[in-house]
Write a protein that binds this DNA or RNA. Structure first.
Lengths: 153, 153
DNA sequence: ACTATATAGTACGATATCGCACCATTCAAG
DNA sequence: CTTGAATGGTGCGATATCGTACTATATAGT
């Protein structure tokens, strides 16, 4: 029997791929967090950054979906951000069950400072890949991510 | 002033890259863990898999370094594996401070079964990337990882 | 040998993460 | 309207993760 469309052991290859991705994720996360103040972790920053890139006023559930985490995890993360005064939870005028998350001035300032303090780490490793390699990688990874997303039914 | 060697905002590109990597890491981890029995998580599987790929008898510290996690985390993971009878901790004959981690038969069986149960998920998304794309991606990611590793001084 | 330092592992406490169960509100069916 | 199902959010408990501090052993310098 000739080899099939996907070949015999693509499985092993994907294993390796996800392994590499997992390690880099862990390394980058550790780097990020080393720059963040005391008890703050990557999700704290990520949520704030997301609120700036898209728009204020997302609901907790929207955020949970955007980050592919359970809603209880998002509740916890948001509680941390609110405790630190970086976001503000308001009632959702359109739905009494729901809330909205709004950035405070402190939240925006925090984000700017965090990015500024992270930049040196990025530039230190920026010689590993050419900019167009990075861009190509992003495109390919995005393709893979969307495929995985779709497979979650 | 003309643009520098790395250009103006590679930072943003790398941000995006790490973001994509983080999301895929999370998605793949969630998929993996959905297939694993009750309280088992990815690190449990990863350690067993690593012990088979390299060799039995690694020390906890070697494993912690291989996975870039604090040694306390590895202690915890190994305790879980031992409790489930998948590995065996023995004294290190060469160093009384140290231990060795050995796979049990149950551990090897578990790994085979886990891989078998994971394979369908992999094949389901294996049409997202061509095999040589995967291979190229692995190579590029490995380059990035090594660079990041080196930057950790 | 003797002491200072480094190394391997663990105990403990603080969060993070997440599944399950629950409440309030909304929506759909009649 | 009324009622049952769906949805948004949280409380709670079980682990996971990790930093700090500690013990035991090994190693280096004298």
């Amino acid at each position: 029997m000739p080899d099939t469309k996907t070949g015999p052991d693509v499985t092993g290859l994907y294993f390796e791929l996800f392994n590499e991705i997992g390690i880099i994720s862990q390394l980058s996360r550790a780097s990020f967090e080393a720059r963040l103040p005391d008890g703050m972790v990557l999700p704290h920053f990520s949520v704030i950054n997301h609120l700036i890139r898209v728009q204020d006023g997302r609901t907790p559930l929207q955020l949970a979906r955007a980050f592919q985490v359970p809603k209880t995890s998002m509740t916890h993360t948001l509680a941390g951000l609110e405790k630190r005064g970086l976001v503000e939870m308001r009632a959702n005028p359109d739905d009494a069950r729901s809330k909205q998350v709004w950035l405070t001035e402190a939240g925006r300032t925090f984000r700017d400072e965090a990015i500024a303090s992270l930049a040196p780490d990025v530039t230190e490793i920026s010689d590993a890949l050419e900019p167009d390699e990075v861009a190509e990688m992003i495109a390919t990874l995005a393709r893979l991510r969307k495929r995985m997303d779709a497979a979650r039914d």
